[in-house]
């Protein structure tokens, strides 16, 4: 039986990157909400966020919710890079340490079901509600 979890993790990382870009675009859309409604960044942000949701849905085919969903937090790591590169925010030592701890968390999640085959994946609820 092949292990499909790496596919799910890869897709979640892509989803996290899209979400981080979307949130950075919202941040760039201005400080007041009315101002934001007139900026292209707000809508581009929604597009990225929406694509992030689509990619996340695809990712969930390849692993359990409790493993894959928290990996979206890798978006925080990406957001530090975006903040520095695009929004010209400064990076602190705490920022780097926090990022390393988050990456460690993602690694723990990634190995949490190793050798464990009886997860919910593939379990269908045909005929169930909705």
């Amino acid at each position: 039986m092949k292990n499909e979890l790496p596919v799910g993790i890869g897709l979640m990382l892509f989803s996290a990157a899209l979400t981080a870009v979307g949130q950075a675009l919202w941040k760039a859309s201005g400080l007041s909400f009315s101002q934001g409604l007139q900026s292209w960044q707000l809508y581009a942000g929604f597009f990225c966020y929406g694509m992030g949701a689509v990619v996340m849905t695809l990712a969930f085919r390849f692993g359990s919710f409790s493993v894959l969903h928290p990996i979206l937090s890798m978006g925080y790591v990406f957001s530090i890079f975006i903040g520095v590169l695009a929004l010209h925010e400064s990076v602190t030592v705490q920022g780097i340490i926090g990022d390393v701890i988050i990456i460690l968390g993602a690694v723990f999640l990634g190995i949490s079901e190793r050798g464990y085959r009886e997860s919910d994946d593939g379990k269908q609820e045909e005929g169930a509600e909705a």
């Binding site: 409790s66 493993v67 928290p70 926090g98 988050i102 990456i103 968390g105 723990f108």
Partner: peptide
């Protein structure tokens, strides 16, 4: 899994 979640919460707090 709990260690992973804990790291994510601590990491974001440290951030």
């Amino acid at each position: 899994k709990l260690a992973g979640l804990g790291c994510i919460l601590i990491g974001t707090f440290v951030l």
